[in-house]
Simulated scan of single mutants.
Amino acid sequence: MEAPRARAERHSPAPTPSIARTTCDDAPIWVSNCNGGMYLLPGALAAMIGEKWKHHARSLYASRDLLEGYAHHIDQISFAMAILDLGLEVEALAVAGNFPLHLAAQFAAGADINPRVLHVHWLRMGDQRLMATGHPGVDRAVEAVNAVLA
């Protein structure tokens, strides 16, 4: 059976993208497939990117079976496809600029991580405060956010 990434690449009219490695598990990923927690776009390109992004999101949603268990990433994948269509280059943020709080356990216990931006999915307590991770630098950022939420 063909892998979901290969089917998505075949589905896209854009050229086959360059491959990068993911931050957490060193897996292959399109270089334009950004961790969707934070996007910083030049204002002059925002409308053009947005138009292509929406186009690919609608197209992928209509063919979401191509993505198997990755359909919940349609927004992120369609952004990658828009960037490829437009021939734009992506500069990935350092992990501190878009720290995936829900993946904190994948970082070494003694890792020196001091996030400026926390990318949050589900690591919240019942009162909507963020949960500690066991990483001192990350937990200082979590405490700062929780102080604002209190």
Rank of each mutant, 00 (worst) to 15 (best):
41 L>D: 07
6 A>H: 09
65 D>Y: 06
73 H>Y: 08
48 M>T: 15
17 P>V: 13
53 W>G: 01
27 A>C: 10
79 F>E: 02
107 F>V: 04
65 D>F: 06
119 H>N: 12
89 E>T: 14
49 I>W: 02
80 A>L: 08
116 R>D: 06
36 G>Q: 05
78 S>D: 02
4 P>W: 08
138 V>H: 02
149 L>K: 04
62 A>I: 01
116 R>I: 09
148 V>S: 08
131 M>N: 09
29 I>A: 14
144 A>N: 07
17 P>N: 09
40 L>T: 11
13 P>L: 06
146 N>V: 10
101 L>Q: 01
91 E>L: 09
74 I>H: 00
120 V>Q: 04
42 P>Y: 13
80 A>N: 05
66 L>Q: 02
111 A>M: 08
30 W>V: 09
141 A>Q: 01
95 V>M: 02
128 Q>A: 14
87 G>N: 12
146 N>F: 06
125 M>L: 10
122 W>A: 09
10 R>M: 12
77 I>L: 00
87 G>T: 10
133 T>I: 03
67 L>M: 13
57 A>T: 06
90 V>L: 10
143 E>N: 12
54 K>C: 04
95 V>L: 05
73 H>C: 10
132 A>W: 00
125 M>W: 10
94 A>Y: 04
130 L>C: 06
16 T>S: 11
103 L>P: 00
73 H>D: 13
60 L>P: 00
9 E>I: 15
91 E>V: 14
44 A>E: 13
84 L>I: 06
9 E>C: 10
56 H>Q: 07
26 D>G: 13
137 G>W: 03
5 R>M: 11
124 R>L: 01
65 D>T: 11
74 I>F: 01
21 R>H: 11
39 Y>D: 02
59 S>H: 08
137 G>C: 08
55 H>N: 00
85 D>P: 06
90 V>R: 03
131 M>E: 14
121 H>V: 12
41 L>T: 14
39 Y>K: 04
38 M>L: 15
8 A>W: 00
148 V>C: 08
75 D>A: 01
63 S>A: 15
88 L>C: 13
23 T>L: 11
72 H>R: 06
27 A>D: 14
148 V>R: 13
72 H>Q: 02
32 S>K: 03
108 A>H: 09
96 A>R: 03
16 T>F: 07
83 I>R: 01
143 E>V: 14
71 A>G: 05
84 L>T: 06
112 D>V: 07
2 E>R: 15
108 A>L: 05
107 F>I: 06
44 A>I: 08
58 R>P: 02
105 A>M: 13
4 P>K: 03
17 P>A: 15
82 A>P: 01
105 A>W: 14
143 E>S: 14
33 N>D: 15
126 G>M: 09
30 W>T: 09
38 M>S: 07
99 F>D: 00
29 I>W: 08
110 G>T: 10
34 C>S: 13
139 D>L: 04
65 D>H: 12
126 G>A: 15
111 A>R: 05
98 N>D: 07
129 R>D: 03
17 P>C: 11
113 I>C: 04
46 A>M: 13
5 R>D: 15
54 K>H: 11
6 A>D: 15
82 A>N: 01
34 C>H: 05
99 F>E: 00
26 D>A: 14
67 L>N: 02
25 D>S: 08
62 A>D: 10
130 L>H: 04
10 R>V: 09
128 Q>F: 07
